[in-house]
């Protein structure tokens, strides 16, 4: 009985370790390849550890690699993405919080319908709106600009941020809002003094979620931007597709890691809030 138990345990861990390796291997190969020299890559084994570590590929990916006709590396795209992601995340999160607050605590005639319609936005395939959105951006004079990308991401983000906040706020007892109303607080005072301070877990979830979504977006980036407003994902694509005489795997790998690094860092720093926020149920009084 006991032995059988042990056997199961060993089998279980074997499966888990296998799965972990399976998922970590690409990251490992990316990381190691990015610090190898091209000579070593051509000579060596894909899996082998680097014999000597060099950051030349990183420097090149950042500053001098060619992305199409230009050869300025990813840095320009990276800053575009930063300029896009910060306002887009903040605005969509703020609006989602206010929407969720209204739809859960200040219900009005038709608020359920409103919520259902907003929810619909979560399921709309991006491709469907590309043309109308391009038209709209044109009307607003925001075509091919970072501001236009921010606008698109905010509009698309609202559906999911509203959903997140609304579902979290439903768990806050209505009596709390009633008590605050009796205390004389109005809509905004209740929001800022009572509801928002209770929202840390879900704010973290939404921030991480939105950051990841917007940073990693390629489709909107490639469609709604051009030239000097393109985000990092488009830059990475351009870099990898620019044909050079030799394929520089180490530069490609370094570029890919640069593109992914911010989301990884955000998750490492705030990931525990993400898990905590997703599992946090009703707020205890």
């Amino acid at each position: 009985m006991d032995n059988q138990n042990k056997l199961w345990r060993v089998a279980l861990y074997a499966v888990l370790v296998y799965a972990a390796v399976y998922y970590l291997l690409p990251l490992y190969i990316m990381a190691t390849t990015s610090v190898k020299s091209m000579d070593e890559i051509r000579a060596g084994n894909l899996i082998a550890l680097p014999m000597s570590i060099t950051f030349d590929a990183w420097g090149k990916a950042w500053a001098t690699a060619c992305t199409g006709v230009e050869c300025g590396g990813l840095s320009r795209y990276f800053w575009n993405s930063v300029q896009m992601v910060i306002p887009a995340v903040l605005i969509s999160t703020t609006l989602g919080a206010i929407n969720g607050y209204v739809l859960s605590k200040w219900r009005f005639r038709g608020s359920e319908l409103t919520f259902a319609l907003i929810l619909f936005g979560v399921f709309i395939p991006f491709q469907v709106v590309l043309l109308p959105m391009a038209q709209t951006l044109g009307w607003f004079g925001m075509a091919r600009s970072v501001a236009g990308l921010v606008f698109v991401h905010v509009v698309f983000g609202i559906a999911s941020t509203t959903l997140f906040f609304r579902n979290y706020y439903v768990g806050i007892p209505d009596e709390l809002i009633k008590a605050a109303r009796l205390d004389g607080a109005g809509f905004w005072r209740i929001f800022f003094k009572v509801v928002l301070p209770m929202s840390t877990p879900i704010v973290m979830v939404v921030l991480i979620w939105q950051f990841t979504q917007i940073w990693n977006d390629f489709l909107f980036g490639v469609v709604f931007s051009s030239g000097d407003s393109q985000p990092i994902t488009v830059g990475l694509n351009n870099l990898a597709n620019t044909s050079t005489s030799v394929k520089e795997y180490n530069v490609d790998m370094a570029a890919a890691i640069i593109a992914a690094l911010p989301t990884i860092i955000v998750y490492v720093l705030a990931g525990k809030y993400f898990v905590r926020g997703l599992t946090a149920g009703a707020v205890k009084g």
Binding site: P173, L176, K178, A179, R181, L182, G184, K193, V194, G285
Partner: peptide, 20 residues
């Protein structure tokens, strides 16, 4: 309005502001 009725209420769940 509730705040102008000169009343105070104690709720079943107490409804204390958890962050204060």
């Amino acid at each position: 309005a509730p705040k102008d009725r000169d009343i105070a209420m104690v709720f079943q769940s107490y409804a204390l502001y958890p962050t204060m």
